[in-house]
Design a protein around this nucleic acid. Structure first.
Lengths: 246, 246
DNA sequence: CGCTAGGTTGAATACGCTCAAAGATCGTGG
DNA sequence: CCACGATCTTTGAGCGTATTCAACCTAGCG
């Protein structure tokens, strides 16, 4: 069984054995983190790149008076610090939200992959593009959606992203997020998140059992939140690139 | 005199003549757009990449009921559709905010540059990373700052970005944005933007003459908005990459 | 058993929104 | 060159969504 990274990149291009070997060359060293561990903080030099095998993390920024905004959530299959070879100090922090398991390597290793396995390199670059698309959707969510829509929309995004790596069912997934964390992601107050969740529950749209989020009617919630999953899934690399990278 | 792209990339790496030639190979074909022209819309195939020589544009998403959120502003020196070789349909739209002048080329040309002039390629890739950093800052701005801080913060961002390409003075620049556009960038209503601008004016922080924004006291405004320009400027490429790309 | 982290609820307040209408500015055609 | 329409700005009034403050409840863990 392959890890979440292979699974995710595999939906994009059919990885050859050589490419899988190439990817595995990045997976020589493992490192795990406890909940609340800080992988790196604002201003730190970025010396390492991580591939997340298991667990959740968050990328965030803090203001001096304690306000905090979560930029996005990092899930299994995601990379942390891919831009390490291009940017030397971090402009945000990354904390583990659960216990995490990762592979670590030097950022320059990515550049080597581009040379050796260009098609795999393209798939990894695509990953970076998708990350930007997720960030863009986060801007719209916070800027132009109501608290109700925002929350629903985030849940649907998490559902889809987790499905892509085989960690969510048709309509449910483990969600290790406190309301406090949700608030800082959604740009809302903790109290208002609590009330919004209640509304979502009372409308029969979601159920929350233990830490598992169950979406009662995915279609209805998608319509309500005007959610479209295009920005998450890989269609394929455009034909031009496919040809270019042979 | 070189264009804004050379100027911007030049702050990052000292471009050799060969690299400048390499960059100029992307500037063979020009195209200009009228104000309000749509470069591409959500769902369109991305077939071309643009380098902006002059004029402003915006990247935005719309909801079905007419709500609109601007993701970021595109200024001279910026690229549009760099991910063209990786993503085949656009998940957002790009409209010209003023008359624009650009250079166009096929997305795959970027890949060629990576091969021929790797250091220049790295500088262009850095550009993409910076774009993500700007988007991240937009998330924080909208999610966790007050209307007053938001507006001030955006103005400072625009000042710095324009200074980088030589299009702003020490404390002022041409800003071709209506309040309606500002509102959709800041996640506020038009009316509230108007009132916020008045407050900024009455506090003696900014002045708006014709379409020129003058920041009365940049330091004070930066402190007030908790603005730090690190995410905009190039420090340098990290040493590891410099070595790698020789 | 007591502490801490997280969840729930109420009450009062405030920030920003909507609706509405009236000026100002600019480009264009008569 | 002026008049007209279109676009953009300004202001008032009332409202609503989301915030703050505060308290209490619950579960898990040492």
């Amino acid at each position: 069984m392959h890890g979440p990274v292979v699974r995710k990149l595999g939906t994009l291009v059919n990885l050859t054995n050589e490419e899988i070997t190439c990817l595995e060359s990045l997976q020589t060293e493992s490192r795990s983190f406890d909940r609340h561990a800080t992988l790196y903080g604002e201003g730190d030099r970025i010396e390492l790149t991580y591939m997340v095998v298991d667990g959740w993390a968050m990328r965030y920024k803090s203001l001096s008076d304690g306000r905090r905004q979560i930029l996005n959530f990092i899930l299994p299959g995601d990379f942390i610090g891919i831009y390490g070879s291009l940017i030397d100090t971090a402009d945000h922090s990354v904390d583990a939200l659960t216990r995490m398991q990762t592979h670590v390597f030097a950022p320059q290793r990515i550049l080597e992959v581009f040379g050796k396995c260009p098609r795999l390199g393209a798939a990894i670059a695509w990953t970076a593009g998708r990350e930007e698309a997720i960030l863009a959707e986060q801007v719209v969510r916070i800027g132009r959606r109501s608290a109700f829509e925002r929350t629903a929309h985030l849940f649907l995004e998490l559902l889809r992203r987790l499905q892509l790596v085989g960690l969510a069912g048709q309509r449910s997934f483990e969600m290790p997020l406190s309301q406090d964390i949700l608030a800082d992601s959604l740009g809302l107050s903790l109290v208002h998140v609590n009330r919004t969740l209640r509304r979502l529950r009372q409308s029969g749209l979601v159920k929350l059992v233990d830490k598992r989020l169950i979406i009662e009617d995915v279609d209805r919630l998608e319509r309500l939140a005007e959610f479209s999953p295009d920005y998450i899934e890989a269609s394929t690399l455009p034909p031009a690139t496919q040809a270019e990278l042979r």
